[in-house]
Design a protein around this nucleic acid. Structure first.
Length: 474
RNA sequence: GGCCCCAUCGUCUAUCGGUUAGGACAUCGGCUUUUCAUGCCGGUAAGCGGAGUUCGACUCUCCGUGGGGUCACCA
């Protein structure tokens, strides 16, 4: 029990989730699942100013969509409840008092303006700002109106081990008297996450590499509190498509649920994100969520950042669509093509699956290449007639095909094909099949003529041919 | 600027001292297809530079270069 792996995802409720956040959650979740451990969802809402209404629900919806399930969290509770930091203020106060008693925490005597002045001075002198250079000689009593700062006990060079990056180190410039509790009574991330991870028994902390720089501060605090630090797992950044900038909300990182709207499959997104910064080593790239959690390992997480390539995501989505059962495919297609009859969709399914990369492509009737199955198309007679043949010949072939189809077996695409092909080969495939396909679909880009006949059915097929033949005459 | 991290095809990556540096996406060409799409076959394309260690370096070390992160009462 004591050796159980415990991971967590601890977002702040400041808006939607983008791919970076999702991937962090995914790795923490995958590692817990791989080890039959526990995955906790915790909300870090200590910055009330940045909080966005509805974020928590949005985050949970995003995770649920992807199948990232948590064992403890704000909605389901658990032995470490509560899971929202603003409801855990007593804990932070308790440990703050322990630090005060040890002489390792003190109220910041300066005003915000004064601190800003110190910072500007350091900036002008082109050196890192260190608050501890201004540390007061005597500590006042903390009455809660001033920020409470951590007095770094040992100014030393820290070295530590990261599960991904290996041995790491930092200079003494990385250590400073950071704020534990803000003047509004809420703790900072730097303090709160350490207390929570400890109290919740978190064994592995996954987070992006922007936290490397503050790791010495965390280490110093673990020491002061006599906590055993968790295993640190630094994740590589996800870069935007254009440049090498880290992908963030400001440079167009999308809400993960937008991909849901666009008809992406959650398992494809999971697969894609998993491989953006991790690779099991083989040449297999398409993996189910189960395969991913089973083969997940910390050693295989990459150090270098990776660009988010939507083209590859699109391809991956197509592959995952093909992995679905035909029944699931049909149900999904139906939900996107509500205006089409079940009969047509049943017959068209293989063709549809063959041509789409996301189900979302089916949502717009206006631009759908299948729309002529729904309504009779406006047929441009000029385009029906082959350049090489005259309109008389085009009509002759259409009439001939019609005669063949009249008594044809419409039970399969192949049956129809077998009947028409001999005639088509005799008179030139293009001369016969082009007018046929154009007559039925009215568009140059579309499905092959045999599948069209099959899906439309005998009556509709013949009716459409008749319509065109009459039009050629007039 | 200080501190820290990173570095293989355009992109995602394999390689854990000895390989014709492999795969995938994208791209290009061919075949299949009446067109489009699919499918199949094939091509172009990479170890940032310089020292060192070694019989041998993409792989180990150092320097440089480039990119990134951080230096908040944000996380």
């Amino acid at each position: 029990m004591s050796s159980q792996i415990v991971t967590r995802f601890a977002p702040s409720p400041t808006g939607f989730m983008h791919v970076g956040g999702v991937r962090t959650a995914l790795y923490a979740w995958a590692w817990a699942r791989k080890n039959n451990g526990k995955f906790i969802l915790r909300i870090e809402d200590t910055d009330k100013a940045r909080e966005v209404e509805g974020s928590i629900e949005h985050i949970m919806e995003s995770l649920k969509w992807l199948g990232i399930t948590w064992d403890e969290g704000p909605d389901i509770g658990g032995i470490n409840a509560p899971y929202i930091q603003s409801q855990r203020l007593e804990s932070y106060k308790k440990y703050a008092n322990i630090l005060i008693k040890k002489g390792l925490a003190y109220p910041d005597p300066y005003s915000e303006e004064e601190v800003t002045t110190f910072r500007k001075k350091a900036e002008e002198e082109k050196r890192a700002f260190l608050y501890r250079e201004y540390r007061p000689k005597v500590f006042d009593e903390w009455d809660g109106t001033k920020p409470l700062r951590f007095k770094v006990p040992n100014i030393k060079e820290y070295t530590w081990s990261d599960a991904v990056r290996g041995e790491m180190s930092a200079g003494v410039e990385a250590l400073d008297d950071f704020i534990l509790i803000k003047s509004d009574g809420y703790p900072t991330y730097n303090f709160a996450h350490i207390i929570d991870d400890y109290e919740m028994g978190v064994t592995h902390v996954m987070r992006a590499d922007e936290f490397i720089a503050s790791t010495p501060k965390f280490l110093s605090l673990y020491e002061a509190l006599d906590f055993v630090p968790p295993v640190l797992v630094t994740l590589p950044p996800i870069l935007g498509e254009e440049g090498n900038k880290k992908l963030g909300k400001r440079d167009g990182a999308k809400d993960i649920l937008e991909y849901k709207e666009e008809g992406y499959l959650p398992e494809a997104m999971l697969n894609f994100l998993a491989f953006l910064g991790w690779n099991p080593g083989g040449e297999k790239e398409i993996m189910t969520p189960k395969e991913i959690t089973e083969s997940f390992s910390l050693e295989k997480i990459h150090k270098a950042g990776a660009m988010f390539d939507e083209k590859k995501l699109l391809w991956m989505n197509k592959e995952h669509i093909r992995l679905q059962s035909s029944d699931t495919q049909l149900q999904t297609v139906k939900s996107y093509m509500k205006d089409y009859s079940d009969d047509i969709l049943n017959k068209l399914l293989p063709t549809i699956i063959d041509r789409i990369s996301t189900y979302g492509e089916l949502s717009s009737i206006e631009t759908s290449e299948f729309r002529f199955f729904l309504n009779r198309p406006k047929v441009d007679i000029e385009k029906v007639i082959c350049k090489d043949t005259g309109k008389d010949e085009a009509k002759k072939h259409l009439e001939a095909v019609k005669e063949i189809l009249k008594d044809a077996d419409f039970s399969s695409v192949d049956a129809i094909k077998k009947l028409i092909m001999p005639y088509a080969e005799e008179h030139g495939k293009g001369n016969v099949l082009w007018p046929l396909r154009m007559s039925l679909s009215g568009q140059e880009k579309s499905v092959d003529p045999f599948t069209i006949c099959y899906a439309l059915g005998k009556d509709e097929t013949i009716a459409r041919i008749d319509t065109v033949c009459n039009k050629i005459d007039s």
